[in-house]
Design a protein around this nucleic acid. Structure first.
Length: 306
DNA sequence: AAGGTCCACAACCGCCAATCC
DNA sequence: AGGATTGGCGGTTGTGGACCT
């Protein structure tokens, strides 16, 4: 006997989201915040499963998401983190606040996996550092592994706090501060449409539609007024006001915030840029000490478990 | 030009854990 | 305490565009 579906299958729309649906969802979340997903389909009239709404928001519509090509920097981080954590995409994504776990997972499966396999085939005898999540290196799912991840995070944060005293003035150069904390509707659309246009023309057209719809929608006095009065935010194209509006949007108070994955870019900026661990992650020569650090991390982080 | 294949990515599915009642 | 509900996560699939023959 399996678990019942999260929602009634009958009448539920599936497949790609339309710009109209996106706008409905975004405007609803703008007003109510990203919580109580169960009620979203009911309250918005969207013929979508609550889960689908949540995924659409977290993976695509949520402000602060960086789309498009991964930088070498990000690529290295993913490779190192995957070697350390296995296919724990959410955990990996927590180190790349602007990327979604889905994005990272896709990038790994479509690019990095092949890339590394190619590299490994050249040095198969050496026993490469990077292996798939199903390999012997990756750990089976379990509480101790989650604890490990937590411990790494805690250690990271402790280091961050210690270092932040001396580094606080340098935070603006943070690798995590790539994206502006300022958002307005046009930036939102431009940013995403630009990224989309580089990857998928169908999505580009979708974003063009969203852009047009948003523009028309913003021109509507009712919708603008509604947005402003309901949440104190503004979708106005006026830059300063809209920036503030999207900043507010970025700072939704919800349970999600407890998870690093959902750090807004401004929150992310508050973290110290490069902890020692992160420096290791970025270090090209890290392969040498990789094993040592792995052992150290495992030993130290699991010492209290047994 | 047309058909076939490959590729990238959004979306879905099923399971698990946390929370609620 | 325990069943129901909800949200999160990782694996997988479907679809549309790009590329090749």
């Amino acid at each position: 006997m399996g678990r019942p579906p999260c929602c009634e299958k009958i009448g539920i729309k599936k497949g790609p989201w339309t710009p109209e649906e996106d706008i409905i969802l975004v405007s609803y979340i703008q007003e109510h915040g990203p919580s109580n997903w169960r009620s979203v389909p009911t309250n918005t009239g969207l013929m979508r499963c609550s889960k689908s709404c949540r995924l659409r928001w977290t993976n695509y519509l949520r402000p602060g998401i960086k789309r498009g090509n991964f930088t070498d920097h990000e690529e290295k981080m993913i490779i190192h983190l995957q070697a350390l954590l296995g296919n724990r995409w959410a955990a990996i994504a927590s180190y790349l606040p602007q990327r979604t776990d889905n994005d990272i997972k896709n990038y790994w499966n479509t690019h990095l996996k092949k890339k590394l396999a190619k590299n490994q085939s050249g040095a198969a005898e050496d026993g490469g550092d990077y292996q798939d999540g199903n390999s012997s290196r990756s750990q089976p799912k379990g509480q101790w592994e989650r604890r490990l991840q937590t411990d790494i995070h805690m250690a990271k944060q402790a280091l961050s706090e210690a270092l932040s005293l001396s580094k606080s003035s340098n935070n603006n150069n943070n690798v995590l501060s790539e994206s502006s904390s300022s958002y307005d509707a046009s930036k939102f659309v431009t940013r995403t449409s630009h990224a989309a246009s580089s990857s998928s023309s169908s999505y580009a057209s979708s974003y063009e539609n969203i852009s047009k719809l948003l523009e028309n929608w913003m021109k509507s006095p009712n919708s603008c007024a509604e947005m402003t009065t309901n949440s104190g935010n503004s979708f106005s194209s006026n830059n300063s006001e809209a920036d503030h509006g999207f900043d507010s949007l970025l700072s939704f108070k919800s349970d999600d915030e407890r998870k690093p994955k959902y750090l807004s870019s401004s929150e992310a900026q508050q973290q110290v840029p490069l902890t020692l661990l992160e420096k290791w992650l970025f270090d090209d020569g890290a392969a040498q000490c990789h094993e040592d650090l792995m052992n150290m991390s495992l030993e130290e982080s699991t010492s209290g478990l047994f």
